[in-house]
Amino acid sequence: MSETGMMLQITRVDLSYFFRTKWLLATLIGLNITDMLVVGLVYNGLMQFNYFEFFVPGVIVTGLFFASFDVGRRVHLGLTEGVSQYYLTLPVSLNALVLAHLLSAGLGGLIYAGILIVIASASLTAMHLPSLITPNTIVLLPALFVLSMGLAGIAAVLNLFSKAGDRYWVFADGIQTALVGLSTVAYPLSTVSGFFKPPILTFIEYNPLSQGAEALRTVVYGFSSSPVFNLPALFLGSLALLAVGVISYRHVFTRLRDTGRI
């Protein structure tokens, strides 16, 4: 088998771990669907603007983030249970192994977000609101794929610093909570700007999750609550994170290959 074939095989195996982990899928689907169809709808009645319409793209991007970020859990388990050590014995280069993991993260995030988009569109159509499935959304899919791979780069940094034990799970939970909370996923920038000052406000504006949510809102509804949103920024931010992910995973696997330790 060629190296590319081997890399795609590892990608497929890694991706299938994600979709075969029942508790994880139950958690993600349970959280995202109830967030959309219960929290979004109820808050809609408590607020002065159409919160449901605003919140749904945010939930989809959060789902993409969690699904893509799961690569960190898989690599962490792979490192502690010896799967990564096995991968290193295969005739595949370090770069191909790194790319296989990041590719599976990107695909996992995109597929999962795609499922959420279909469910959300069905709900929005039933409520006589614009569906999320539009030609513009399909054009946006490559950007979401790059975003998904970029977000996996953050998980790679955690793998680099967490080593064995509990620390990875704590860091992962903390990063997820902070990144979602410090974004415009759940509240518009006008609300955030009354509460935070730069540099935190700047971070919120350029947070990849804010950019992803604003991208979806812009292509579907034609508006964005974040005036700084633009597609090049989304691409550049994601590619920068992806580069950090490649460097981190290269370091993790090099250390494992050379020293045999995590």
């Binding site: 808050y43 408590l46 607020m47 002065q48 919160y51 909570t177 902070a178 909370g181 410090l182 759940a186 509240y187 609300t191 955030v192 009354g194 509460f195």
Partner: peptide, 15 residues
């Protein structure tokens, strides 16, 4: 985080 950030921001939207 939930109380001082998320809670503060969401409660500003709830009227």
């Amino acid at each position: 985080f939930q109380y001082f950030v998320y809670g503060q921001l969401v409660s500003r939207l709830v009227v």
